[in-house]
Amino acid sequence: MDFLRPASWEEALAAKAEHPTAVPIAGGTDVMVEINFDHRRPEYLMDLNRVGDLFEWEVGAESVRLGASVPYTRIMENLRAELPGLALASHTVASPQIRNRGGVGGNLGTASPAGDAHPALLAAGAEVEVESVRGSRRIPIDEFYTGVKRNALAADELIRAVHVRKADGPQQFSKVGTRNAMVIAVCAFGLALHPQTRTVRTGIGSAAPTPVRAKVAEEFLNAALEEGGFWDNGKIVTPSVAQRFADLCSAACNPIDDVRGTASYRRHAVGVMARRTLTWTWESYRGARRITEGAA
């Protein structure tokens, strides 16, 4: 095993081009466990901790450019307004110690369906900025996950940042685990209201081979909200609409039975979380509307 220590992003790209089998390591959450337990013996380990650029974020007009290594703790503390869904998801990642080192780049690189960031990124809308010596490209989050623990990266590419759309409305994230802290998701759900476009987006974790959106459910809810004039009248979402949305989210799952939970439970829990997060975000939207109206 060789240990590569690129001091800059350019050096990292060059090293990855030279050694496409090199395994990047940043927070170590997944890679070190695989090494400690002899599940993996990569030819090259490439440390990204010295690439300072990866720890930075910029808040733009439309989106936040979030460096791949920005620790979850930083996201929780500094980006709650811009990226509320991701901030909530970050708070559920593993333990405080791991949140201090791990970042979204690791979740995306591993592309485990159980990664906590995925549902929030899917719901918010995001693009993954990847680069190689051949050039840079942005992969829409919906096209990023290609299979169980597989993603759209080419062998010579590295994840540099993720561009997450700034919240234009309430967002929520919820995750079921069988412990009250430090737990891998049995399943998870992210929901974002986008009042500007009058749409909702969703993300489901650990309930299908990849993180997925519940697109049929989104379309149903978009239509129902539009039809009922809910965005304008700020009424409570009809329980039957919320339940239909929850059922469609359940239907978007393609879960398995495993030691963490049954497929049937996962489908059920995603439905419950969909209904609850819709209630929470919609209440929040209505509250914000009232405040706005009051101020006007």
């Binding site: 240990f3 170590g28 959450t29 466990v33 380990l45 080192r101």
Partner: peptide, 17 residues
């Protein structure tokens, strides 16, 4: 590690240079 609590089992030795 640089003031921040981390799990030292998840830090590769080369990363602490």
């Amino acid at each position: 590690l640089d003031g921040v609590p981390v799990c030292s089992c998840l830090v590769a030795a080369g990363q602490v240079e």
